[in-house]
Design a protein around this nucleic acid. Structure first.
Lengths: 164, 164
DNA sequence: TTTACTGCAAATTCTTTGCAACAAC
DNA sequence: GTTGTTGCAAAGAATTTGCAGTAAA
């Protein structure tokens, strides 16, 4: 689905629920869908603050994210501790995540075979799946390389004690 | 690994880090490992409050959970929004989770084939996995049945509008 | 004009922390 | 005795909420 169609869908969503299309909601929606990055409520709030346009308060960001979530336009994912992170789901194929502990980058991956096995496991238990979260936590290729380089240098120059 | 051995391992863990085995830590450890249920910090705190023994404050519960986490005796999992939930990992085979939205029950499942595909996906991207969280969210068999029965009764007796 | 929306600041929820008294080692 | 621990209450971080003014429809 392309941007234009998604926006229409959001407007329809608001109308069916007798909600109003305010300039704040519009800005939040546009900003959230103009990126392919994952973002937290705070990040989105910061973006909106830096860019020009009608003022949007933090409370409204949270409230609108709630709406987008209900409408299944976006999806939240828990990336370790702390704040929730969002990504748009409409117009974006389903996928799972790999979260890098060092740089925070979130890579997406997808494997039909895993999905099939998941379906099999839940069917066997009579469990009806509404959504699923599949997250691998570790170190991405770039950070692993970087760490390896640093280890080598440490060896070469003789470093101090290893600290965390 | 059986209980006795796990406790020894915990004591060893404390000793290597020059930490002390206090009655509070001991109680928290014993309580956490005496159940196969998943628990939150608050739940654990409540258990300790109801049962008799040396007083344990909420702060100490959090601090000790932190220690157990560092020592990989327990593992945390994000079950939807809000608080973190813990389970012991030592002496317990690896598994994934199905979380029921209706009753909150957490079922465990495991499939070697999924693990293998996960390993394949991460290897392909040069991603080094430290841990993973795989969670299916939905409705368990019991709750699905219950909901179905209620739907049938609603039809039979003619219910009002469906509300959330 | 009606009904919903927004910003603000205060409230909540979960978790962490500073500090003085206290208990392992 | 030392050094790490505890409880308490206050602090923090993320998110929610009550309310009076404001803006869509």
């Amino acid at each position: 689905m392309k941007h234009e169609a998604i926006r229409k869908s959001f407007e329809r969503f608001l109308r069916t629920r007798d909600l109003k299309l305010t300039s704040q909601r519009s800005r939040i929606f546009e900003r959230a869908f103009s990126t392919h990055e994952h973002f937290s409520a705070e990040t989105l709030y910061d973006w909106l603050r830096e860019e020009e346009g009608p003022k949007v308060s933090r409370a409204t960001v949270y409230r609108t994210l709630g709406l987008l979530l209900e409408g299944r336009f976006i999806q939240s994912l828990d990336v370790g501790r702390g704040e929730l992170v969002y990504e748009h789901v409409t117009g974006h194929a389903h996928h799972d995540h790999m979260v890098c502990l060092a740089c925070g980058k979130i890579e997406e991956f997808h494997d039909e075979r895993i999905e099939a096995l998941q379906a099999e496991a839940s069917a066997k238990r009579g469990f009806v799946v509404v959504s699923h979260a599949h997250r691998l936590v570790g170190y991405c290729r770039g950070c692993v390389r970087k760490a390896r380089r640093e280890d080598e240098e440490e060896q070469r120059f003789g470093g101090g004690a290893a600290t965390e």
